[in-house]
């Protein structure tokens, strides 16, 4: 006779069921804790890391953005670029780039050639001159507009339209007559 005969089958089933329910509860609590931790990371990370992504018009035109850490996009004026290589300070001017456009190269070209366009002076320290910083590049800067009217950037990303817009060749000097 096996020892199992001494145990009431109903009791054994109930015990297994209780154990199973206990395990399930442990998994549930563990899962909820992980979910809570991940949720906390998302919310806290979003609250501390969120930056308004705005245009030069918006940051210059709204006093509420002054001193606030924001991300701004603008078109670089090539002649304004000044690089102090000894102190690693870059200064340049950007002009407003519309929020929506079909052709980045065209939008940048139009923006820098519009004398009425809003301008903003940018200063970034301890940064090596990026190779992409040039006339009609799109600059995406993170930083804050100071009371001096200068945008003090802490991060600078650049996009050069000619890398992305595949334009075509000019008509060769010698071409067939139609």
């Amino acid at each position: 006779m096996s020892t199992q005969d001494w145990v009431n089958p109903n009791d054994a089933a109930a015990s297994a069921s209780t154990r199973s329910a206990g395990e399930r509860l442990k998994f549930l609590i563990g899962g909820l804790m992980i979910l809570g931790a991940v949720g906390y990371l998302v919310i806290s990370g979003t609250v501390t890391g969120a930056r308004f992504f705005i245009t030069v018009d918006e940051v210059v035109g709204n006093a509420e953005y002054q001193g606030q850490s924001v991300r701004v996009t603008g078109a670089v004026i090539g002649d304004s670029i000044n690089y102090d290589s000894e102190n690693l300070i870059i200064e340049f001017t950007v002009v407003n780039l519309p929020e929506r456009y079909d052709d980045l190269a065209l939008a940048l070209h139009t923006a820098v050639n519009d004398p009425e366009n809003t301008r903003m002076h940018v200063r970034i320290e301890n940064e090596v001159m990026p190779d992409l910083l040039q006339h009609e590049a799109q600059a995406i800067m993170t930083g804050a507009l100071g009371p001096d009217g200068i945008f003090h950037a802490t991060e600078l990303n650049l996009k050069c339209p000619t890398r992305f817009i595949e334009d075509g060749p000019a008509v060769p000097a010698e071409h067939p007559e139609i």
Partner: peptide, 18 residues
Amino acid sequence: TVDITLGTEYFLNVTPPL
């Protein structure tokens, strides 16, 4: 009404614990 981006700071805060 305004676009929001999350910069490098977000990733440096949220990913190390995981």
